[in-house]
Simulated assay, not measured.
Amino acid sequence: MNWRNRSLFYVLLLMALGSHLLTIGASAAGWAALTLNYVAYPHLAYWRARRARDQRLAEMHNMDADIVMAGAWIASLGAPLWISFILCASGCINMVVFHGARGGLRLMLSLAVGMALAALVVPLAWQPETDLRTSVLCMIALLLYLFAFARDGYDRAMSQSQANSRLRKQYDEIQSLQAQLREQALRDPLTGLFNRRQLDATLGPAMQLCREQGACLSVLIVDIDHFKRINDTHGHAAGDAVLQSFAQLLLRHMRPQDMAYRIGGEEFLLVLGGTPLDTAVERAHMLREAVEVLRVRTGSGELSVTLSCGAAAFPLHAQEPQDLLDCADQALYEAKKGGRNRVVTHPGPVPLQPALSASE
Rank of each mutant, 00 (worst) to 15 (best):
residue 114 G to D: 06
residue 201 A to Y: 07
residue 96 V to T: 10
residue 227 F to E: 11
residue 28 A to Q: 13
residue 126 W to E: 05
residue 197 R to G: 15
residue 214 G to I: 10
residue 9 F to T: 10
residue 54 D to R: 09
residue 81 L to E: 02
residue 318 A to N: 09
residue 124 L to Y: 10
residue 39 V to Y: 09
residue 297 R to F: 02
residue 252 R to T: 07
residue 7 S to C: 13
residue 292 E to P: 06
residue 250 L to N: 02
residue 331 A to Y: 01
residue 181 L to T: 08
residue 356 L to R: 15
residue 187 R to M: 05
residue 359 S to D: 12
residue 179 A to S: 09
residue 291 V to W: 02
residue 205 P to H: 07
residue 65 A to G: 06
residue 226 H to N: 11
residue 340 R to H: 08
residue 125 A to E: 03
residue 243 L to W: 01
residue 269 L to Q: 04
residue 204 G to C: 05
residue 269 L to S: 01
residue 183 E to S: 09
residue 14 L to P: 05
residue 240 D to Y: 04
residue 250 L to R: 00
residue 281 V to Q: 11
residue 287 L to A: 02
residue 113 V to I: 15
residue 319 Q to C: 09
residue 239 G to V: 02
residue 271 V to I: 03
residue 252 R to I: 01
residue 190 L to R: 08
residue 346 H to A: 10
residue 232 D to V: 07
residue 246 F to S: 02
residue 119 A to M: 12
residue 314 F to K: 08
residue 117 L to C: 11
residue 303 L to G: 07
residue 9 F to D: 05
residue 221 I to E: 04
residue 123 P to W: 07
residue 53 R to Q: 13
residue 88 C to H: 01
residue 321 P to A: 05
residue 53 R to L: 14
residue 172 D to E: 11
residue 263 I to A: 03
residue 286 M to P: 05
residue 60 M to P: 02
residue 200 D to Y: 00
residue 241 A to H: 09
residue 213 Q to Y: 06
residue 12 L to K: 04
residue 69 M to T: 14
residue 259 M to S: 03
residue 252 R to Q: 12
residue 358 A to K: 08
residue 3 W to P: 04
residue 232 D to G: 07
residue 353 Q to E: 13
residue 329 D to F: 01
residue 209 L to D: 12
residue 52 A to T: 05
residue 355 A to S: 13
residue 186 L to I: 06
residue 233 T to C: 12
residue 261 Y to L: 00
residue 223 D to L: 11
residue 185 A to P: 00
residue 148 A to V: 12
residue 240 D to P: 07
residue 254 M to S: 14
residue 163 A to S: 13
residue 355 A to M: 12
residue 264 G to Q: 09
residue 148 A to S: 15
residue 68 V to T: 06
residue 286 M to V: 15
residue 186 L to M: 14
residue 67 I to A: 03
residue 80 P to V: 01
residue 308 S to A: 13
residue 330 Q to W: 03
